[in-house]
């Protein structure tokens, strides 16, 4: 695709790479293909299992494609699988996750972007200290702070509520998002900011009218980071959301790991796929932006 013909390539092992089927190529593509197969197998098995009937599964070949495709496991996983408490399927968890996801994503990005903006253009005494503390906070094992946060939320009347879990996601998303925005805004030329100041624009005006329009890519990166992160969260959901607001991941665990009754592997795999569907779609659509998000978040962390 990139049109690098073997003769012009200045590769690291560029001795005489003329034949396409050189030993080097066979090794490189061979190893990569084997690895790729290993990485794809679980997804394949999930899909195949979720389309089989139980008797077929009991025959014991998890790699075999379904002899008879059935969508019943999907319907059951969505609509009527039992969690030990009730038999309403994953749909309750799905909508709970949506209800958690939308405000959490929006609020956390709004706050973190303003933080990053203040930290790069409006430094005040102590701002760097708070930022360092915030970053260190990203490394603290959550287990240390979960209980005092339960007390705090209880005092605020937000424990086991939608508002509580949204607040928690905002707080725990803050270090990484603030870093992301700060690094991005740091690359914006200071002259631009100064010119706006000279023209009399204030804190909010510069942010809303100048920086926001030019930083769309970083907002998309933050969006991807938060959507996958919050959707995939289990730990905070199980502690702070309360039984009524359990997100999809928690409900999935309750469905699959209930000890009672016959294990319906096909329903379990359909449920697992349903839970993983949104992040997978986001991942495959966003492509390079997803990579950029994790690289920006990770390398500079």
């Amino acid at each position: 695709m990139r049109g690098v013909t073997p003769t012009t390539a200045i590769g690291p092992r560029g001795s005489k790479p003329k034949r396409i089927l050189s030993t080097r190529n066979i090794v490189v593509y061979g190893v990569l293909t084997v690895a790729a197969v290993y990485w794809v197998i679980p997804l394949y098995v999930m899909i195949v299992t979720s389309l089989k009937g139980l008797p077929e599964i009991r025959m014991g070949n998890i790699f075999a494609p379904p002899l008879q495709i059935t969508f019943e496991p999907w319907v059951k996983a969505w609509d009527s699988a039992c969690t030990g408490l009730s038999c309403e399927g994953l749909k309750v968890g799905f909508w709970n996750s949506v209800k958690i996801l939308i405000p959490s994503t929006f609020i956390s990005i709004a706050i973190a972007s303003v933080n990053g903006y203040a930290l790069s253009f409006w430094k005040f005494k102590g701002s760097e200290v708070f930022f360092t503390l915030l970053l260190l906070g990203a490394f603290i094992p959550y287990q240390v702070i979960i209980y005092p946060l339960v007390i705090l939320l209880r005092e605020l009347g937000l424990f086991a509520s939608l508002g509580g879990i949204v607040l928690i996601h905002t707080v725990f998303g803050m270090p990484i998002l603030t870093l992301l925005f700060r690094n991005y805004f740091a690359s914006v030329p200071m002259e631009l900011f100064k010119a706006a100041r000279v023209d009399g624009a204030g804190f909010w005006r510069i942010f809303l009218q100048i920086l926001l329009p030019m930083s769309l890519p970083i907002f998309v990166v933050a969006l991807i980071l938060q959507i996958t992160g919050i959707w995939n969260d289990f730990f905070f959901g199980v502690i702070y959301a309360g039984t009524l607001n359990f997100p999809m991941t928690v409900q999935l665990n309750n469905i699959v790991n209930t000890t009672q009754g016959v294990k319906e592997y096909n329903v379990n795999m359909a449920a697992t796929l349903l839970t993983g569907l949104l992040p997978l779609v986001v991942y495959f659509i966003s492509g390079k932006l997803f990579v950029r998000g994790i690289a920006a978040g990770a390398v500079k962390g």
């Binding site: 990485w39 197998i41 679980p42 997804l43 098995v45 999930m46 299992t49 998890i62 996958t228 959707w231 995939n232 969260d233 289990f234 991941t249 999935l252 665990n253 699959v256 592997y265 379990n268 795999m269 697992t272 839970t275 993983g276 992040p279 997978l280 986001v282 991942y283 495959f284 997803f290 994790i294």
Partner: peptide, 17 residues
């Protein structure tokens, strides 16, 4: 792609595998 999936999903797939 597995990095986009939650630990819950990862764990359940491998439990089945």
């Amino acid at each position: 792609y597995p990095f986009a999936l939650s630990f819950m999903v990862t764990g359940l797939v491998w439990q089945w595998m």
